[in-house]
Design a protein around this nucleic acid. Structure first.
Lengths: 192, 192
DNA sequence: CGGAATTATGGTCAAATGACCTTGTTGCGC
DNA sequence: GCGCAACAAGGTCATTTGACCATAATTCCG
């Protein structure tokens, strides 16, 4: 399991052998079954999570019982609830596995330590943060501007691989539309 | 004009006299009239902007001619199009003044230099970035979960001061609802 | 100060959307 | 391999939303 991670990291950041070894040494591997929960809303997020394979979703359930999905996290990406992680506050969101997944976890104190010891890791983290900001902004723009059709088209184009791996209701929960409208859109597109 | 900025900065970051002086020295003051444009979509964002007083908005106009507002930036906040600024690519968005505003500008090379010279400024910037991430995430969640009423209520609660300073159509463009629905909501609330 | 532009509100109507329910199918877990 | 739960899709209907238009009020700028 660590091999995939090391491959990923040396592909994306310019780390020394030593750094790579240290980062790996502090990683805690975990296997999550389908629908297994990694972070429960209300708990504090204590780990950084790297997904080796599988697919996670970050979501929140409102009082009316509806699920809203903030993010999908496939293999070779990271996830966590930053706000809870940074401030040690209860998380608003849950993180659970859509598919059975293998992940690596780092405890916050360990990871903070790594960031101090390896400036190159810090630089890499900052890149990830930047991308996060760009994509959040783009998502907000898409949510503002589009009709449901456009949002769906945008989703298919932006995340081509996800369509086949997700139940439609989750895509609807991600786009902020009802399952009904989503199936209507797809029917219309089939007839074309 | 610099006085307000220095006050702000020494209130929020732990900077030396020297740092404060250097940061101020590289700031370029500018006055923007109402509807004045600071960044035009298509141009590259070359500055960091600090708003001393007034109010800016960051928006994008889609092909169908509709304006969508990503952000309002009141006095004592920062703004820019990060993606364009970081990558030197054409901006997707425009930034313009809602009220006549006074701002400070830093050229990117200057600010990058400041970040290297003053680690405390870097730390402060990272805090701002974090807050940006938290609020983007919260906004996405609100956009997903709420009815127009709830979104409006949330807006009023989150930004109490803005209501009086903005035309309703801009609030609608920020919430992603039509002006019509917004006035309907407000009428319903008046009768209560 | 006065004309012009912006803004808020309301009416009307068509279209889109969601809530609820039913049905048939898939696929997961034991 | 089987049974049950999750899932996609369709029907119906009430409600919401937006587009378009007109009008009044306000604000801005020369």
């Amino acid at each position: 399991m660590l091999a995939e991670f090391q491959q990923y990291l040396s592909d994306h950041a310019n780390l020394t052998e030593d750094a790579l070894r240290e980062i790996s040494r502090l990683a805690v591997p975990a296997s999550i079954p389908r629908n297994g929960v990694l972070l429960e809303a209300g708990d504090t997020c204590r780990h950084k999570i790297f997904i080796i394979n599988g697919l996670l979703r970050t979501f929140s359930i409102t009082e009316d019982g509806n699920e809203h999905i903030l993010q999908f996290s496939p293999e070779r990406t990271w996830t966590l609830d930053v706000e809870s992680y940074d401030k040690h506050t209860p998380s608003q969101v849950s993180i659970a596995a859509v598919e059975p997944s293998n992940v690596l976890l780092w405890h916050k104190p360990d990871f903070d330590d790594l960031l101090l010891r390896f400036p190159e890791l810090k630089r890499f983290s900052e890149q990830l943060i930047s991308r996060n900001i760009y994509s959040s902004r783009n998502r907000i723009l898409t949510m503002l501007s589009g009709t449901p059709e456009e949002k769906y088209a945008d989703f298919v184009q932006t995340y081509p691989g996800f369509l086949a791996r997700l139940p439609l209701r989750m895509i609807a929960a991600y786009l902020g539309i009802s399952l009904k409208t989503l199936t209507r859109i797809r029917r219309a597109q089939l007839r074309r």
